[in-house]
């Protein structure tokens, strides 16, 4: 079966700083992969390479078996990959509604915008209350909700989520994960980057552990706990 997303021996740099040293990664259609590792291990860079935000300096990226290396970001998006970057990835000068409209209109077409907005506000009622507020004036957590609402409603073919739970109250994190569960069962593949492994491992089938920009281990999510703990201790002991 052709993988939905495949990274083969990917190297990547930020200026003089190399972040990835030959990473291999596969996400099968409808699959769910948790990307684990300490800060600076290259998790975010993998997520960025998988949407063209950072170009691989060597190696290949393929979507549905089609070579996508060095294609611009919008081509990845059009191929059905939605990415919720870490942090407050929103348009701060737009209203809440404009933020969502931009995404929905481009992915789903004009007709579906209204319907999708309602879905988003159902998912995060707080956003509904503030639909015409400027996004930059929302609280940190609300901004985070907004950037998640963008991608959760889309039901893309692959959803890449970077540090979902960052800055969210535990109760909201629970809600987000149950939504992820739901869109997973409707066929969306997931690539989850998380510091807080417990949730992610529960949701995913497979796990990939990155260390210093290389894949240190990969296997089923259920085995990941022991392995990761052992390794984190090792690296913490350094």
């Amino acid at each position: 079966m052709t993988a939905l997303l495949e990274l083969r021996d990917v190297w990547a740099e930020y200026g003089p700083f190399r972040a990835l040293f030959g990473v291999d990664l596969k996400v099968p259609p409808g699959g769910a992969v948790a990307l684990l590792g300490a800060n600076g291990a290259g998790k975010t860079t993998v997520a960025r390479v998988a949407t063209g935000l950072v170009q691989a300096s060597a190696g290949d990226v393929a979507v549905d078996g089609i070579e996508m290396t060095n294609r611009p970001t919008y081509a990845y998006a059009r191929a059905g990959i939605a990415h919720a970057p870490e942090g407050r990835s929103i348009f701060a000068s737009f209203t809440v509604e404009e933020n969502l409209t931009l995404t929905f209109r481009s992915f789903l077409g004009r007709q579906k915008v209204g319907e999708s907005l309602e879905q988003a506000f159902e998912l995060f009622p707080r956003l509904g209350e503030r639909r015409s507020q400027t996004a930059g004036t929302l609280s940190g957590g609300e901004q985070r909700m907004l950037s998640l609402a963008r991608v959760l409603v889309l039901q893309p073919r692959l959803l890449i989520a970077d540090e979902l739970s960052l800055g969210l109250a535990p109760i909201v994190v629970d809600e987000v994960y149950s939504t992820l569960e739901a869109i997973r069962s409707s066929g969306t593949a997931l690539l989850i980057v998380e510091q807080h492994m417990a949730h992610a491992l529960e949701l995913c089938d497979d796990a990939v552990l990155l260390e210093h920009g290389k894949v240190a281990w990969q296997g089923s999510a259920s085995d990941a706990g022991d392995v990761v703990t052992g390794r984190l201790f090792e690296s913490a002991g350094d």
Binding site: D174, A198, E202, A224, G225, T229
Partner: peptide, 26 residues
């Protein structure tokens, strides 16, 4: 706290979990 992480990972390895707390004493 290091041990706390260990606990979390162990917990994650146990499939039938009902609590939704994060790694904390999972």
């Amino acid at each position: 706290r290091g041990l706390g992480v260990a606990g979390a990972a162990d917990g994650a390895a146990d499939p039938p979990r009902t609590d939704t707390g994060r790694e904390l004493g999972a």
